[in-house]
Design a protein around this nucleic acid. Structure first.
Length: 508
RNA sequence: GAGCCGUUAGCUCAGCCGGUAGAGCAUCUGACUUUUAAUCAGAGGGUCGGCAGUUCGAACCUGCCACGGCUCACCA
């Protein structure tokens, strides 16, 4: 790290008094023969464990037990008087108080503690006690300096409030805002619960498929474009997992799923990040109704992480995830909300007339199906509160879903809506290669007509279908949105450790 | 992409009608052997996001720029 003196001077100018003091203390430690960035240390206990195990005992009972433990963590608060001091030590499980006495740890150890800053990592070996006020506490006989913090931490009481800084410097958010820390723990547990349900209850196989695609298909979205040097070809970051997973169904894997990052080159807001995590699952011999059952199972398993009775509150609205989810055909839902009946046969012009009458905007290339979908989005979607499967999407907006056997205008597809937001998209997969090719061709026409999110033809995928794919039920769930719902997060950025941000110019 | 709002000490925030900046925490010095947003006494710390402009004078008014947030449009 040999810096030229000019840079060093610049750095010093940018430092405030607190940073200077901390660097001085770091040097002081070195002079005292203590490594300010120490080595391995073996804690024998975590804060939370200790609370669970010992908080139920009285001060006297703990004295009698005489339990000695070693803990380590970041000092996040410090309260001193002359020859004794209290501090809160934060480890990965939570906080615990330490009570350091000069007459117990000795002059040298007490000096280390006294000179330590909030943010430093310390290790303590001592007895588990309770204070006069009944606070479970470690009373150390030995203090070990573990690591120096050269920058001051956010306000201990208010935590870090600045949203931009929370997203850019997530570590500070995690240190100072426990609810944020807990949310990411919950997110991990939610994903684990989903995996466990698919693996063990439904006997799925988890797989990993390529992120780099020669053509981006499986969804309607603009992709990120990249380039492979050795092959000298253009590649796209995947916008969906779909087409590879279905190839695996052709390959006989039967039940597969992937939880993986997908990338869409589109706008960002509190529900969209350019990269997000999607679950997709495909099961041979399932139809969309089986997938509804599967979806309910996944949501219930995930909800168990945060709620025993399936009741959750999202942004002030209560939702019951234990009750069977409602199932309603899109056309029926529109009819109920608006009185407009799309079951009756009509031309594109008829549909556009209805759209005009109801103030629904449309593009010139739209057909009846697009307009039905627009009616749904405008008049039905925002009104849904309890978990509801809306099924029977028009064929025009469902290029990968199987046609309904009785009414070919619609597909055996559903989406799950909760509180006006979409959480899952699923269908009986289109396994007729001839039909699939035609649907791709229709997408190409749409693209030519001005829809730049329409897909191209994936010939290789059509070829796979030609070898034969069993009837299959597929499902996609936005994992980030599921995590938002279950952790009551108002923005997708609150469930992404490092949401996409525009880079800062000056990084100090 | 459009509209609205925000950016002041390390952090959380005040700052009135335009008169060269304040609090709490944190930091520093001192006191204190059971504190828990410890307390008490004292001290230091600012390119008021950036650049222009208006003005005798700008944190405050105007314009442009940067970053962020919210709402809308598109999407999962």
């Amino acid at each position: 790290m040999g810096q030229d003196p000019k840079q060093k001077r610049k750095q010093e100018r940018q430092m405030n008094d607190q940073m200077r003091v901390r660097r001085e203390k770091m040097n002081e430690l070195r002079e005292e023969g203590i490594d300010p960035f120490g080595h391995e240390f073996k804690p024998t206990a975590l804060a939370k464990e200790l609370t669970e195990k010992y908080d139920k005992f009285t001060k006297e009972e703990l004295e009698e037990k005489d339990v000695t433990v070693t803990i380590a963590g970041r000092m996040v608060a410090k309260r001193g008087s002359g020859k004794v001091g209290f501090a809160d030590i934060l480890d990965r499980s939570g906080k615990i108080q330490v009570y350091v006495r000069k007459d117990v740890v000795g002059d040298e150890n007490y000096h280390i503690f006294k000179r330590a800053d909030i943010g430093d990592f310390l290790g303590f070996t001592g007895e588990v006690i309770k204070t006069d006020l009944g606070q479970l506490t470690i009373k150390p006989t030995h203090v070990t300096f573990l690591s120096k913090s050269l920058r001051p931490l956010p306000d201990k009481y208010h935590g870090l409030q600045n949203k931009e800084q929370k997203y850019r410097q997530r570590y500070l958010d995690l240190i100072s805002n426990r609810e944020s820390f807990d949310r990411f723990q919950k997110r991990a547990k939610i994903i684990k619960a989903v995996r466990n349900y698919l693996d063990n209850t439904l006997d799925f196989t988890e797989v990993e498929t390529p992120v780099l695609h020669p053509s981006a298909g499986g969804a309607s979205a603009r992709p990120f474009v990249t380039h492979h040097n050795a092959l000298d070809i253009q590649l796209y970051l995947r916008i969906a997992l779909e087409l590879h997973l279905k190839r695996l169904i052709v390959g006989g894997m039967g039940r597969v799923y992937e939880i993986g990052r997908v990338f869409r080159n589109e706008g960002m807001d509190k529900e969209h990040n350019p990269e997000f995590t999607e679950l997709e699952s495909y099961a041979a011999y399932y139809d969309y109704r089986d997938v509804m059952d599967e979806t309910e199972g996944i949501f219930r398993a995930a909800a168990k992480v945060v709620s025993n009775d399936g009741l959750i509150t999202y942004q002030g609205s209560e939702v019951d995830l234990d009750k069977p989810f409602k199932r309603v055909h899109m056309v029926d839902a529109i009819k109920e909300a608006t009185g407009v009946d799309f079951w009756s046969s009509m031309s594109d012009e008829d549909a556009k007339k209805l759209a005009d009458e109801h103030g629904v905007k449309y593009e010139s290339y739209w057909k009846v199906g697009h307009i039905i979908n627009a009616f749904f989005e405008k008049f039905v979607e925002p009104t849904i509160t309890n978990p509801t499967f809306v099924y029977g999407h028009p064929i025009e907006i469902s290029p990968l879903a199987k046609k309904n056997a009785k009414d070919p205008r619609f597909t055996d597809r559903f989406e799950l809506y909760i509180l006006g937001n979409e959480y899952a998209n699923a269908f009986s997969e289109l396994n007729d290669p001839i039909d699939q090719k035609q649907r791709f061709e229709a997408q190409v026409k749409e693209r030519e007509a001005g829809n730049d999110e329409a897909q191209g033809i994936d010939e290789d995928y059509v070829k796979a279908l030609e070898y034969g794919m069993p009837p299959t039920g597929g499902l996609g769930i936005g994992i980030d949105r599921l995590a938002m719902l279950l952790t009551d997060a108002p923005s997708i950025r609150d469930v992404l450790l490092f949401p996409t941000m525009r880079p800062e110019e000056d990084n100090n």
